[in-house]
Design a protein around this nucleic acid. Structure first.
Lengths: 199, 199
DNA sequence: GCTTATTGTGAATCAGTATTCACAATAAGA
DNA sequence: TCTTATTGTGAATACTGATTCACAATAAGC
């Protein structure tokens, strides 16, 4: 049965969302045009009416992921002005995001970072760096406000914040319910806070 | 020019080492039988004289990686009995390993964990879990010895220890010399130590 | 209703990688 | 030296996934 004809901007959106879900479930490398098509409800060759190729779809997906991370940052900054609280809330939001999109860590740790072309590396960068910078900004503000030790590099702290989430997401997945990511964040954050806060 | 004939146990070893290097440089997905063969100095079809298929080579590589991580654990336990020092030394060794084998984090965070079969997930587990357990053991010993807070789950601490290294390795790679992994460990470890040590 | 640009389809093509296959060469043992 | 098991080779095959291509169908505009 032939799918209904849909305007290209609508179909592009559907394709992007389908691809995002698939990437988030299984990672980049497992993404196949045929799977996207199936999820959208068209045949694979129809995808090329709306995107030039698979690479273009992936570019869009990476943008979407980056956006979601940035939305989380904006959200916590709206919610409180206290840097330590911002970090805590950001970790919670990040954990929630990863519960929905389980494979996102593997996107960030994509093998393209190592084996890929400079172009591919730049694309991976395009997610990681802005997020890192946003966290560093929060840390710096906390240092200026006297809540966070200013003898530490903001980057060191920011990397440690990311370090709460990233390995934990993997382990949560491997442990199948015997290790809860949100729970881990609640336990790990006070440890890190103790390490970075001014006493 | 025809390669010299080599006994299969020797060739198997060569193949495994070549594959390990390639995986460590570029990750699992970029591993190709042709590249292994080239690195060993034979044609691709010769590989099948010694390994049933690519999957068997990969199994061997995963074992080798796991072994190296365990060797690091054994090494630090030989070197000192103090848990906090063990963790610090382990982090140093881990950082050193990752400087040599850059793509190892992506192996551990392999997309197979998410999208793969249960069998593939078990294989990924086979690296992560023993390493985690070893760290947890060190943490537990530190708690019993009164050096590490015993109000924390050993697992929480172990995951945080891993969290010092994993995102940092990526960022070191992306930053191209502007972010040194060993340096980060030296800065980050005291922060974590402050969070976990008994005062 | 007719025209036309756009979108959907199904088959074919292409490219890349893993693997098989049949022949060749080597090294060890008798 | 001869035999044979084992390992190396190069071509062919098989498989998978991305993409092209030509035809079909749809929806909008006149």
């Amino acid at each position: 049965m032939r799918a209904k004809k849909v305007a290209t901007d609508v179909r592009q959106e559907q394709i992007a969302m389908a691809a995002l879900e698939l990437v988030a479930e299984r990672g980049i490398k497992a993404l196949q045009v045929a799977d996207i098509a199936k999820r959208v409800g068209v045949v694979p060759s129809a995808i090329y009416r709306h995107y030039k190729g698979k690479g273009d779809i992936l570019d869009t997906v990476l943008q979407l992921i980056g956006q979601r991370l940035q939305e989380n940052v904006l959200g916590v900054c709206d919610e409180t002005s206290d840097a330590l609280q911002r970090l805590e809330l950001l970790l919670m939001r990040h954990a929630r995001l990863l519960t929905t999109y389980r494979a996102i860590p593997s996107v960030i740790f994509s093998e393209e970072i190592y084996g890929g072309t400079p172009e591919q590396r730049n694309k991976a960068s395009s997610i990681v760096k802005p997020y890192m910078r946003a966290i560093m900004r929060i840390v710096s503000e906390g240092q200026q406000a006297g809540a966070i030790r200013d003898d530490l590099h903001a980057r060191t702290v920011a990397v440690m914040v990311m370090g709460i989430i990233q390995p934990a997401a993997i382990i949560a997945h491997l442990e199948r319910g015997r290790f809860d990511l949100g729970n881990h964040v609640q336990q790990a954050w006070p440890v890190l806070r103790r390490g970075i806060e001014v006493r």
